[in-house]
Amino acid sequence: MISETKKYLQFIFPFFNTKRTKEIFRVNPTVLPVREEATEVEIYVYDYNAEEVKEYELDKVEETFTCRDNNKISWINIDGLRKTDVENISKHFGVHLLLMEDILSIGQRPKMDEIDNVLFCLLNMLYFNDLNGAVESEQISIVLGKNFVISFQEDKSRDVFNQIRDKLRIANSKLRISGADYLCYAMIDLVVDHYYIVMEKLGERIEQLEEEIIRYGNSRSLARINNLRKELIVLKRNMAPVRDMVNGFLRSESDLLQDRTTKYFKDVYDHIVQANDLVENYRDMIMTLQDLYMNKVNLRLNEVMKVMAIVTCLLAPAAVIGGVFGMNFEVIPLTHQQDGFFIAVGLMFIIPLWMVWIFKKRGWF
């Protein structure tokens, strides 16, 4: 019976998306998720130093093994995850088994670990889908070692690291003359900066919703408030742990991080703190919009009740007069007079008009 009710409610209230709620809260850390193997894997390698940069595409992860000891800084970017590929490259570059499991995980909380002279960070890249107004996430894993950085991405069609690729092609750029730790910083910084793009689009939706509620708030507005609140939950869940992740780099004493790079991670830390503050502001705005909607509904109800009360008051004299002349008595004033009917009808109109004048004089409407 409950399932049938939900089925019919989906047709009556199509804007209330309960499926999205299941997608947001479906993560269960006690159940090992099963990741689908990627059908296609793209491997790009960038070997660079201050003098030159070489970029090439490889077919197998085994071809990247020469990048470990080539006296250059190597960035290995893998789009698409396969268990065998992750295991092979992790074993060769000294990535611990626990970090390997985090790379292959689903719905993992953003984190930073330091195991066996390897720094590992995991965070989610966020995108805003304009079609359904939902925030989508892509898990990105970054492994920082001595003179190499390995990045794992789930979706090859969406990538925000093109700015880094362009800077690597510029001679004497900051990336070219810096170490692998600066490359790791640049990647995290791009991901955090992209959070602001997602928040800006959500902010536009909130502003539009505010205008809609002020003009004509209805059940559709309430549904949009509910949907926006869900997307803010996605933002909060993915962005809040990034602050602790960046703070891990600031507190790390690893030899892989140079002292001059610490100030750059401090800048990323300030950005993510500000982003979390903006999410809290958006959350307060959503709660304010909900209160505004309820006030709008109550105001509309009060207006309806006010009109009904006025109509009832205006019709009361006519009901009284009609009731008096409708009584079954033989002697009633004006009953047998020629102008009695017109006098009664006139009173039915004159008294309500006089009442309207009194109401307007007192400012009741």
Rank of each mutant, 00 (worst) to 15 (best):
P33V: 05
I103F: 01
L131D: 07
F161M: 09
S90M: 06
K22Y: 12
R35E: 01
T66R: 13
L32S: 11
E51S: 14
G80Y: 04
S105F: 09
D113E: 13
V53Q: 00
E101C: 03
N129R: 04
G94W: 10
L122E: 10
N77F: 08
E57Q: 11
E55C: 07
M125F: 10
E37H: 10
D59W: 07
I142L: 15
Y44R: 08
V41Q: 12
H96P: 07
V95A: 10
C121T: 13
S74D: 07
G94A: 03
I150S: 05
Q139D: 06
D79L: 01
E23K: 04
V160A: 11
S137Q: 14
N70W: 12
V135N: 12
K156F: 10
R82Q: 11
E62W: 08
K22A: 05
R26C: 13
F25P: 01
Q108P: 04
I150R: 02
L97C: 02
E63N: 08
K111V: 00
Y127R: 11
L123M: 15
E57K: 13
E138Q: 14
N132H: 08
T39L: 11
Y46Q: 01
T30C: 03
L81F: 14
N117Q: 14
E114G: 15
L99N: 15
E51N: 14
L98W: 03
V118L: 05
N28M: 07
Q153I: 06
V34C: 02
V86Y: 14
T64H: 05
G94I: 05
V31F: 10
V95E: 13
N77P: 06
L32V: 11
